[in-house]
Amino acid sequence: MAAVSMRLPVARKAVGPSAPRGGEKHLVAPGDTITTDTGYMRGHGTYVEEEKLIASVAGAVERVNKLVCVRALKTRYNGEVGDIVVGRITEVQQKRWKVETNSRLDSVLLLSSMNLPGGELRRRSAEDELAMRDYLQEGDLISAEVQSVFSDGAVSLHTRSLKYGKLGQGVLVQVSPSLVKRQKTHFHDLPCGASVILGNNGFIWIYPTPEQKDEEAGGFTTNLEPVPLSDREVISRLRNCIVALVTQNLMLFDTSILYCYEASLSHQIKDILKPEVMEEIVLETRQRLLDLEG
């Protein structure tokens, strides 16, 4: 006889600081006039009509000298050079792959901007073009770095480092890009026994920590050895922790994920997704992060 627990959905209660820190922010909604002063420059999330600066998205106003922007709470990913992204191949074209990266247009990964097996300085021949599908095919997940951003907002990627390349076994979590904190490194080997890639585009990849670091193949051979149960448990726990942090709008970075993981250890993995448990562990994480800041 299996015990079945049934639950009804209720409105989410957000746990968090009762009063916003750092003073009241200037919040605007579309159509609100931000300023009638013509001395300001128009930034993202604003437009000018009849010499008035008007907000076009709902969010907080940010001023940098003369530049006025409105940052929306949640948007699609806007690429910036140097960002680490995780993406999924959607199309194989002549000399390039199209990659879905939660951006406004699919990103491109050129054949010439990736390391092929057999050394960095190898010439790309017609055979390579024909064999593109052997390297990456539709549906494959990759990690890459943003090489450049085109004028229409599309992004060009590169994988010219052994860090990047095809992703093997693991779990993908999709979150809002605004919840991923920008840091020096987005590849983390967590002490709990798994690694995460926190893509700037909100795609998060959780995978077992690889044993040997120096991979020769340039990241095209995927390890298909079965992952031990203990590793899988750690990965699923991390996944549920990340989901918990995201539902409570907490920024994601290595420390917050680790604290949340530690806070969750007293619960079963599947219980982390229960709203009351989620609330409890996120509250504890938030408190520890605040203590850390001092």
């Binding site: 957000a14 968090g16 600081p17 009063a19 916003p20 750092g22 919040l27 969010g59 709008n249 920024m251």
Partner: peptide
């Protein structure tokens, strides 16, 4: 609608902190 939007804005920005 404006009230609903602002309510939500306040809620989420308070959660996000700084």
């Amino acid at each position: 609608l404006d009230r609903v939007v602002r309510e939500r804005l306040r809620e989420v920005t308070a959660l996000l902190g700084d």
